[in-house]
Structure formats: C-alpha cells, structure tokens
Design a protein around this nucleic acid. Structure first.
Length: 679
DNA sequence: CCTCGCGTAAACACCA
DNA sequence: ATGGTGTTTACGCGAG
C-alpha cells in the first residue's frame, strides 16, 4: 500500500555523493580495461592480481606525478618560462569533458622527457615519474586480455608470461635507476631516506617546513644538478593512460583548492583550469600578481601596475637556476599541502562514515549527500537547478541535513539539529526545495526516522511536482509522505491533519475537481511567495457560536472564483517552470500531462463569466453544476484577496470592495484593495 | 518584547 | 453512523 506509486525513480541519490562524478567517466574511459583486469580474472595467477593491485597504487602515483608536472608547467607558464618545445595547445584529447576538466593538461611523453632533461627534477619528481613509467607498463600489461591462468596449456599464456617477465625486468631496471638517483641525491646531502624506502620521500622531507627552511632549500637545490637521463621509453598511449586513470579524489581536491589559501602570498595553489580561465577572462589578472605585489615566492616586489609587474617577472624571474629551483620548492609545498588535504579529507570521510553508520537502519547507510565537503564538491556537478536552490546562508535549504536524536547526517553547509527543533526556510519567501534536496537525502529519510527539515508545504509541493501529472490526491500525498519519509509512518493523524491544514492554508495549493474526485496541484510561483490564504476578517473561533451564522456574515468563507486570468496564467507558467526546474523532461507542459489542467484556463474563464453574471452571488462553489464548464471541470480555487500586482484587469470586479474596518488591523489586508464583505 | 511562520490540535462541514 | 476530506481557528514555539 505504501509503496504503490512507482514514481520514485530518482537516480541521483547516491551518484552525487562523494563527488564521484568521475566514476562514470572511469567507466567510459578506463572501465573496460579495469573491468577486464579486475572483474574477470577470478582466482587467477597471483601475478595478474598483483599487477591489478599495483596498478591502483601506481595510478595514484601517476596522479601525483602529473600534478607535479602540471604545477611545474604552470609555474613555468606564469613565470614566463617556456619549455623549449612545449606545445601551446595540448593535443586533442579524447576524454570525457569532465575528466578533461579535472585534468586540464596532460603531460605528453615529449614533455615528460623535456622536463626530465631540464635536470631540475627533484628526487620526488623523478620517483613519481619512474612510477609513472612503471604504471604505464602495468597498464600495457593489463590491457592485454586476461589470461585464463588456470589453464596450463593455454598457448597465449606463455606469451603473457614472457611479457610479464620482460615487464618485470624493466621494472627492475627502473627501480635500480630510481635508486641510483636517490643514492646520488643522498650523497649530495639533499635527501635523507633509506635506499629501499618505497614511499615518496617528500613527506618527511617537506613536513614541518618553514619559510627559512624553504629558503635554505632553494639555495641548496640551485646547486644541485643531477644528470639523469631517462631511457626514453615513451609511449604513445601515455596521454590516454594518464587521462583515464585520473579520476580519484586527490586530483580533484587539488584542482579545486582555494587559490587564496595561501600564507602571506607565499603559497598559491591554482588550478590550471581556473588559471587559464582567469587569464582569458581577465587579461590583467595574474596569479603571481596581486595587490600591487609580485607574489613570486619570496619576492614580494612592489609593482605599480600590471605592465611593470610583467617586466619584473620577465627580468627577475626569468628562466634560470634560481627560478627553477623555486618552482621545485613550490611544487613541494603544493604537494605537501595536497597531502595534508588528502589526509584531512580522509579523516573527514572517516568521521562522517562513522557518524553515518550509526543510522537507525544500518543497511540504509544513506551516504550523507553533501558529505563531500564544499571544498571538494564541484558546484557544477549536476547541481540542482539554480533557481530552485539558492544556497544562501540564510536559507538552510539543501541537505538541511538533519541531525537528530538518533541518526545524524552532517554536511558542510550546515550542521543542524532538527528533531524537535523546527527548521524553516526564509521567512520572507519560501525557498522551494529542489528534487535534488530530497533526492540526495532520499535514502536517508526513507530509512531513518528523522523528521525532514522541510516544511509541510515544501514537502507537499515536492510530492505534487514529483508526480507525473503534477497533481495528487490527498491520499496520494499521504502515500508519498509515508513512502519517502520514515518519520511519517507514525502519528499519521498528526501529520495528515497538518497536510490537510497546509493544503487549505497555502495559496499555492489548488484543489481541482474532476468527475473522479479531487486532486491537488501546486502553483510554484505562489509557493515561492509563501503566502497563506487570506481569510476574511479575523475571526475568533468560538465553538459555541453558530458557525453557519458566521459564514453568513463572512463571505470570505465562501469560495468563489476570482482572478482567473491573473491566476491561471501564472499557474501554468509556474507549473512549467517547476517542471523545468525539476528536470523532468517527460512532461513538458502541464496541459500535455494533464488534460484537466490544460483546460484549467478555459474552465476558469468560463467560471469567471459565470461569476460575472452573479457578481453578488454568495453561493458556495461547491454547489455543482453552476455552469456547464464547471460541471465538466469544477475547479475550486481558494479565495484570496487580490494583491495589487495581481489585481490588474477587469477581474477585480469579482470582488467588491467594502470590507469591514477592522481589517486594518490585519497586516495582510493593508495592501489589499478589495475584499468582499457583502451584507 | 514583538512579529511572523510553522506545526499541532481541534472543531466543524460536507460527502460517500 | 462512520470515515475521509476540506476549512478554519487557536495556540505554542522558535527565529528574526
């Protein structure tokens, strides 16, 4: 019964979380490869499994390497350095756009070799490059069809084994080369690591660095020249490889890192993408120039204007040993920051995971929608419609992640305590919750008995808008509530009554009747206004009084049609806007989805005509068959005093203006020009 | 302190 | 008579 409706097929529930937008691209790009290497080699030879495992690690190393190189390129670029043969335009990459955005630049083998030949590589760089090469070879091996290892007589196995042997030999060579390099560096006193230490030596090296140490390091590195030559085993597939594997978090985080997160201008982390954009859009902005000061690490030279800055940049920070060394240091600094960020991200993730596991229903484990910190979550990633979700501090809309008595969800946007504490949107206007809001928390609220931090009106609206035809009966609204929120599976009388109250009270909810009964639609524009139905004079409810007499003396209690044109038009527009807002392409217009709604305008016009004939009619609109159109589509629109902006046109004659004086006390009627108060 | 929005409860009417 | 639906009001609470 509760699960009857099949309209809930939101797919963005968990796809968004964790910023795993790249996972799809991983499928597109490297998924084939990985699927073959991982998924379809069950219990095969250990070598292949190890390769696959090693591949993951190498991919990470690859990423670090790429970032290092990107940083260097970037620094070179902004420093006026020019790689001898560096292409201004990167070769066209056949990668998904989003991936390309995450990895705006890809190091070509030529570039790699150039960088290597520049002899300014740090041991870390060399190491990661070597690892990159290794990873490349791993990729090549893994790309090969997985050998059915359990078959001893497989003719292809021998070939694969030979290749693996050759590969391992190459690996060995590279490791030796790497170690030689590290040893040479050690001899120069630039590196203090154990020869066999596999991890990047950067971390212990760069940890706790202070500016003075950096300065010292600059001095040291400028005198350190190591003539390392790579074997030059370039591979044409490098571009693709490096691009395809780059979808993990560190890259993303580093790319989105706040450029202003610098300490006294010494550190500046820029995403290549952003930078290129800023360069294109703001020709006079420069990452190394700000507030009239050169931001080259350790420089801080005052430059009057941008031109002088450029001169200064070209003269003082030209391509020389000092500059390149400073680039190196800068890279190390950046990498250290990235490591730190990765650590903190990991810690954050663990914290959130831990807190989330405590949800009432472990199976649900609804990932905290926006758990991905605002730092890492790209706003562009399938963000909700902008109009529906102004993520302003004043409107704690979104995840509105409730933290309650039991289960809890945390977002970076807000950490609220909902539970008994009510949360609401802006008092000024309703901020509609987008489908993404609920959808992202859908699993959570479905299983956790947490009161959703949305108002009833918002939820009702959402329910209606989610429905295929943008209309729901009351019972369907009930069902939506119970289906979507575990919280509303209890105390039905309470919240059902609240729903009914809200439906009646809010202007935005329009009851429409047809021959089969009545259903509710929503006027989204009206919803955003957040107004309530304005009743007649404030009436003290006295059960002892004769209600009928009250009705007789309070015509506002009597529903009638009004403001048809002014009302139905925005209604349809609002419905369409709502649908566009909710990205529901299946139902382009309300009239298409719902013939009744499509006829709403004409029906109301007819109704208006009828009403004009009975200007003073005080009969209830519930009386059927007042007009032929009404008989077909008896549309009941809640009465509302005309607002000035809505009262344009001849429709105002529906309401006659003579209301009782005590309306003046009601703020809602200050601007209301008319309100019918007959007899 | 006041106002306002919201949730809740309740009374009541209407209808099937 | 009963239950569902719809309307209206009162009141408390929290936020601004």
């Amino acid at each position: 019964m509760m699960q009857e409706s099949g309209t809930e097929t939101k797919s963005n529930g968990s796809a968004i979380q964790n910023g795993s937008g790249g996972s799809n691209h991983l499928l597109e790009c490297g998924g084939l490869r990985e699927g073959r290497s991982n998924g379809e080699t069950p219990a095969v030879d250990i070598g292949a499994a190890d390769l696959a495992h090693a591949q993951q690690q190498q991919q990470q190393a690859l990423q670090v390497a790429r970032q290092l190189l990107l940083q260097q390129q970037q620094q070179q670029q902004v420093s006026g350095l020019k790689s001898p043969k560096r292409n201004d335009k990167q070769p066209a990459l056949q990668v998904p756009v989003s991936v390309a955005m995450m990895t705006p630049q890809v190091i070509t083998p030529q570039q790699m070799q150039q960088i290597l030949q520049q002899q300014v590589l740090s041991p870390q760089q060399l190491q990661v490059l070597l690892q990159q090469q290794q990873a490349l070879m791993l990729q090549q091996v893994i790309v090969l069809p997985p050998p059915p290892a359990c078959l001893p007589q497989n003719p292809g196995q021998q070939q694969v084994a030979t290749q693996q042997l050759a590969f391992q030999q190459q690996l060995l060579q590279m490791q030796q080369l790497q170690q030689q390099h590290l040893l040479s560096l050690q001899r120069q006193g630039l590196l203090t690591i154990q020869p066999g230490q596999p991890a990047l030596p950067l971390q212990p090296l760069a940890q706790g660095m202070i500016p003075t140490e950096l300065q010292q390091l600059w001095k040291e590195v400028t005198s350190a020249h190591t003539a390392e030559e790579t074997t030059g085993n370039n591979h044409s597939s490098l571009d693709l490889t490096t691009t395809c594997v780059s979808s993990s978090a560190p890259s993303k985080t580093s790319l989105i890192m706040n450029p202003h997160a610098s300490t006294n201008g010494q550190l500046s982390v820029h995403t290549p993408k952003r930078e290129s954009l800023s360069h294109e859009e703001h020709p006079h902005s420069h990452p190394l120039y700000g507030h009239g000061v050169c931001k080259w690490p350790g420089c801080e030279a005052v430059c009057e204007d941008f031109q002088s800055f450029l001169k200064h940049l070209n003269s003082e920070h030209a391509l020389d040993d000092r500059s390149t060394a400073q680039c190196r240091v800068q890279m190390q600094v950046v990498q250290q920051l990235e490591l730190q960020l990765a650590k903190d991200k990991e810690r954050l993730q663990a914290m959130m995971t831990h807190l989330h596991v405590k949800s009432t229903e472990p199976k649900a484990a609804p990932q905290p929608l926006n758990l991905v910190s605002s730092v890492t979550l790209s706003k562009s990633a399938s963000e909700a419609s902008p109009q529906s979700l102004p993520h302003t501090p004043t409107t704690p809309t979104a995840p509105l992640t409730p933290v309650t008595q039991g289960p809890s969800v945390i977002t970076t946007t807000s950490m609220h305590t909902v539970g008994p504490i009510r949360r609401r949107y802006s008092d000024k206007y309703n901020v509609p919750i987008s489908s993404a809001d609920i959808a992202q928390n859908q699993e959570f609220y479905k299983n956790a008995e947490v009161r959703p931090p949305f108002t009833y009106a918002s939820l009702i609206r959402q329910a209606i808008l989610e429905s295929p035809e943008k209309q729901l009966t009351l019972n369907e609204i009930y069902n939506w509530f119970t289906r979507m929120f575990a919280y509303f599976r209890r105390n039905a009388a309470t919240w059902k009554g609240a729903i009914r109250t809200n439906l009646s009270l809010h202007k935005c909810f329009i009851r429409v009747e047809d021959e089969f009964g009545s259903f509710w639609t929503v006027d989204d524009e009206e919803f955003k206004r957040g107004r309530h139905i304005q009743r007649g004079r404030p009436r003290k409810y006295c059960p002892d009084e004769n209600f009928d007499e009250l009705v007789a003396h309070n015509p506002s209690l009597i529903k009638n049609m009004q403001s048809s044109h002014a009302y139905c038009t925005p209604l349809n527009a609002a419905l369409q806007a709502s649908m566009a807002e909710n990205s529901i392409p299946l139902y382009t217009t309300a009239s298409m989805g719902n013939p009744t709604l499509g006829n709403l305008a004409s029906a109301i016009r007819e109704e208006l005509n009828g009403a004009m004939e009975h200007t003073n009619s005080n009969e209830s609109d519930s009386s059927p068959g007042r007009s032929p159109m009404q008989a077909v589509h008896p549309v009941h629109v809640k009465e509302e005093p005309l607002d000035p902006e809505e009262a344009e046109g001849p429709l105002s004659l529906v309401t006659t203006a003579n209301h009782s004086p005590d309306f003046d006390h009601d703020r809602d009627y200050e601007d209301e020009p008319v309100n019918e108060d007959m007899e």
